[in-house]
Computed example of a mutant assay.
Amino acid sequence: MKEILKIGLDSVAPVPMHTDYNSDVFEGFEVDLMREIAGQLNLEIHYEISLWKNILEKLYKGELDMICSAVTMTPSRQRILEFSVPYLQFRLCAVVNEGTSLNNLNSFDHKILGVRIATEAEKYIMEKFPNHQVVHATKNEELYQQLVKKKIDIVIDDSPIAGSFLQKYKKLQMGMFLPDTHSHYGIAMKKGDTELRHRINEVLRHLKENGVYHQIYKKWFTYIEL
């Protein structure tokens, strides 16, 4: 009998990490990665869907076994959770409409910024631009639609997710990568669950050594520098 793991999943799909779990086709980089990990460890995955603003709290309370859903590895999170070795590097970036020029952070002056609630991008904006007008949304899609309609000027997002929306909305472009925002995603687990962490890390290393990780990466990230 396979061990069952309850994995938290962001209900608002951060494509290309994964699509909407309730869509006709549930797929994405993290979906493929977790399928490989589960196969190697003889695990059965049960996804539990939740809003991003609630998902980390559910893991901390022990209502989930892990999260593999674009969780940025930060010092504060690493104090209360276990993390696998990083599985994806990225940066925060600014997405704008075609023809908009961003040279540095001073270019953000007098601009309306958009960001998703309870993300590291939101934290960055509140620290760097405390006096700016900011639109906070629960869904990435809401922000990009407002950007296309020019109701906001800049969307701040993780580069892998931004890349997907650039594919969808051809009139948008990458404005710039934000300085000093190199970050990593990792699989988050309950604090103290070191045995599971070691097992996950072994598989991740094996997938990189045998080329499977590279195949999955190439499948989903061919359009943007991360």
Rank of each mutant, 00 (worst) to 15 (best):
A118P: 00
K123T: 01
L56D: 12
L64R: 09
I80S: 05
M66W: 06
K128D: 00
I125E: 03
E57P: 00
K111H: 02
E57Q: 13
S76R: 12
E98K: 14
G114R: 02
E122H: 09
Y87T: 05
V96K: 01
Y124R: 12
L88D: 09
S69I: 09
K128W: 01
F83C: 06
T100Y: 00
I112Y: 03
K123V: 05
D109W: 06
S76F: 11
P130A: 05
C68K: 10
P86R: 04
T72D: 10
R91I: 01
A94K: 07
K58I: 06
H132T: 10
Q89G: 06
L102V: 08
R77L: 15
N104E: 08
R116A: 08
Q89Y: 15
K128R: 13
T100K: 07
T74F: 08
I117C: 00
G114Q: 00
I117H: 05
E127P: 00
F129Q: 07
R91Q: 14
L81Y: 15
A118G: 02
K123P: 00
I125C: 14
L59E: 10
V95A: 05
M66A: 15
R91N: 14
M66P: 01
M126I: 08
M73E: 12
F90L: 14
T74E: 13
A94F: 01
N104H: 10
R77S: 07
L88Y: 11
L56F: 14
E82R: 09
Y124P: 12
V115Y: 00
I67Q: 11
S84I: 13
I80V: 14
C93P: 02
F83E: 12
N131R: 09
S101C: 03
L64T: 03
L64K: 10
E127I: 06
R116F: 01
Y124G: 05
R116G: 03
L81S: 09
H110I: 04
T72P: 02
T72I: 02
K61V: 04
S76K: 14
S69V: 07
P130E: 10
P75V: 04
A94G: 03
V85H: 04
I55P: 01
E127K: 15
E57H: 10
I55A: 06
T74P: 04
N131W: 08
I117M: 08
E98S: 12
I55W: 06
S107F: 09
E98L: 07
F108M: 12
F129L: 12
L102P: 01
I112V: 13
R91V: 06
E57C: 03
R91F: 13
D65L: 08
N97H: 03
H132E: 11
G99R: 05
L56E: 08
I125D: 01
Q89D: 04
N54W: 13
M73Y: 01
L81T: 11
S101F: 09
S84A: 13
L113Q: 00
E122I: 01
Y87Q: 03
K111C: 03
Y60K: 08
D109A: 11
S107P: 07
Q89K: 12
V115Q: 03
E57S: 14
I80M: 13
M126Y: 04
H132F: 03
K128E: 15
Y60M: 02
G62P: 14
V95K: 02
K111L: 07
F108D: 07
R91Y: 11
K61P: 00
